[in-house]
Nucleic acid binder design. Structure first.
Length: 257
DNA sequence: GCCAACGTTGGC
DNA sequence: GCCAACGTTGGC
């Protein structure tokens, strides 16, 4: 799956990607114009990420607009914002597993083979909100989960910002969610593309070594909330993992920035 | 809006 | 297969 993730309910939604990624990709693409509903919520959620609790739903935009409206926003700020890139981590299952009869396997190697992939099937609000906050061009770690050696396998890029996840509308789809409808879509997806496969996977065990007070990954969201399938990665965490753990040389790193 | 019961995720 | 962590549900 691109998804990548198991859904929360019953088997209603599992992540199945793969087998149908072709079909899914096609269908999502044709329908990927964002609906208003999807857009409406777009700015809404970033904060869930911080406190994944019930429903934070305040509007990030409103407050920021308010604090800034003394002055119009100059272009330079807009530019700065675009440089204030976020980084992410997205989980997928690299080993075969059937969900509603469909294989949900999706690994970094599967991503290499396609032009871009709709990351559908995410059925957790916090994970979805993280996706809605993603901007085109931002980078994410591709994480292998629910497998022999879980860990970061590669780097991917957000190719298309969020749109409605239509897989939720199809009763036969592994990620079907009866509570989501075209009139009132509940789930979103982003399209990602392959950037780089790490020479050596950075295992969860390795990451956990730095998940301690004072250490470089002491606050990493995926370590704190191990069940979250789409999580935020700080710039410091990103650089530490890329440079110190993945040992990606500066040139290569620069080329993908 | 609280919270107990229940279901899911995902490492082990 | 176990089970800890945590999200969801639904009664109140």
């Amino acid at each position: 799956m691109a998804p990548k993730r198991r859904a929360q309910k019953s088997e209603t939604e599992a992540p199945a990607k793969k087998a149908n990624s072709e079909a899914t990709r096609r269908s999502t693409r044709s329908s990927s114009k964002k609906t208003n509903t999807d857009l409406d919520h777009a700015s809404t959620q970033v904060e869930d990420t911080i406190k994944p609790k019930k429903n934070p739903r305040k509007r990030a935009n409103e407050s920021s607009t308010k604090t800034q409206d003394a002055k119009p926003i100059p272009d330079t700020i807009t530019a700065d914002l675009s440089e204030g890139r976020s980084y992410w981590l997205m989980k997928a299952e690299p080993e075969s597993r059937l969900e509603k009869g469909k294989d949900v396997k999706f690994s970094i190697d599967d991503l290499v083979a396609v032009e871009k992939e709709p990351w559908d099937g995410v059925r957790n609000p916090t994970a979805r909100n993280n996706m809605r906050a993603m901007k085109k061009g931002e980078k994410a770690f591709f994480y292998h989960s629910n497998c022999k050696i879980p860990g970061i396998a590669g780097i991917i890029e957000i190719e298309d910002e969020h749109s409605v996840d239509e897989s939720a509308f199809d009763p036969k789809h592994p990620y079907y969610d009866e509570k989501s409808s075209r009139d009132n879509p509940k789930w979103s997806l982003v399209h990602v593309k392959f950037l780089k496969k790490l020479e050596k996977l950075i295992s969860l065990k390795e990451l956990q070594k730095f998940y301690q007070p004072g250490e470089k990954l002491a606050n990493m969201q995926v370590l704190r909330m191990s069940r979250l399938s789409v999580s935020k990665v700080s710039k410091q965490e990103w650089e530490f993992v890329c440079r110190e753990l993945a040992r990606i040389d500066p040139e290569t790193l620069e080329s993908i920035e």
